[in-house]
Design a protein around this nucleic acid. Structure first.
Length: 259
DNA sequence: TACCTGTTTCCTGTTT
DNA sequence: AAAACAGGAAACAGGT
């Protein structure tokens, strides 16, 4: 903890973007997320209380929260069918939801309808303001670790073992899978083989740090965690190419066919 | 409470 | 020379 506070200002490559920080981030050496993720803004939207007015980003958030809350097997959802804004989401029929999410569809459909017609958010339901409060912590993670339960089994299960939510490699993967919000942070070098490259290494590190509530995260430290993935075969070593990594056999959800 | 996992932090040395 | 890579060692934090 002592170490934690002593290195806060030791990120030279990010000094230039610190001046762009919104006031709520003034104590962090982090970039304004809206500069690296155009889909993200930290303003308050009164309209966003209503699903009809959600952005694509909020739709993703809602979907993720539904997956987490109901312990839904993410593999059963065709996420590309939910690449829509709130207006489009609300015009989806019951059949659309079933097509897009199988047996989970009715759960999503019902949940959305409750939000649509209730006009307010009970504490346990999805609340866009929570996104704003937790800032970058909410980068969408549309492909959580697949549940050990089959898609059609009880959705209201106990929490699976994933103590701190998304792992680093999943966080990286989900940025890559969301080009709309990626904005040049990471880039596929070989989409089929799972080879990718960091374009803004320090910005990614800060985003990761933000997610972990760690304002002193750097690419140097993040990359150490990445290197531990080689042994677990979550990543495969790519030699000679700086900032380039490759997903290994134990990384899931990055292939286009898995979407 | 002890233990485990997944990092986080720090460090020294090497490579690009 | 600077940035990135390698990987050991230890600390840390949340979960079981």
């Amino acid at each position: 903890m002592v170490r934690h506070t002593t290195c806060i200002m030791s990120i030279p490559s990010t000094a230039s973007i610190e001046s762009q920080l919104p006031t709520t981030w003034s104590s962090y050496p982090c970039p304004d997320i809206s500069t690296v993720m155009p889909g993200y803004t930290s303003r308050l939207w009164s309209q966003d209380y209503k699903p009809q007015y959600w952005s694509k980003y909020l739709v993703w958030q809602w979907l993720q929260q539904m997956v987490d809350m109901h312990q839904i097997d993410a593999a059963s959802i065709h996420f590309q069918n939910f690449d829509v804004d709130g207006h489009q989401l609300c015009s989806m029929t019951y059949q659309d939801f079933t097509r897009a999410a199988g047996t989970v569809g009715p759960i999503l459909y019902q949940s959305l309808n409750e939000l649509k017609w209730r006009g307010q958010y009970p504490g346990v339901e999805f609340n866009p303001l929570d996104i704003i409060k937790s800032e970058a912590d909410d980068f969408p993670c549309p492909f959580p670790e697949p549940s050990i339960y089959p898609a059609d089994s009880r959705p209201h299960q106990m929490k699976k073992h994933n103590p701190r939510g998304t792992h680093l490699w999943e966080f990286i993967r989900d940025i890559l899978l969301n080009p709309e919000r990626n904005s040049g942070l990471l880039k596929w070098e070989d989409r089929t083989d799972g080879v990718f490259r960091f374009l803004k290494s320090e910005a990614v590190a800060q985003l990761w740090g933000k997610k972990k509530n760690n304002s002193s995260m750097t690419y140097e430290k993040l990359s150490r965690a990445m290197r531990y993935y080689y042994k677990r075969e979550i990543l495969e070593h790519v030699d000679g190419r700086r900032l380039v990594y490759k997903f290994g056999k134990n990384a899931q959800g990055w292939r286009e066919s898995e979407k």
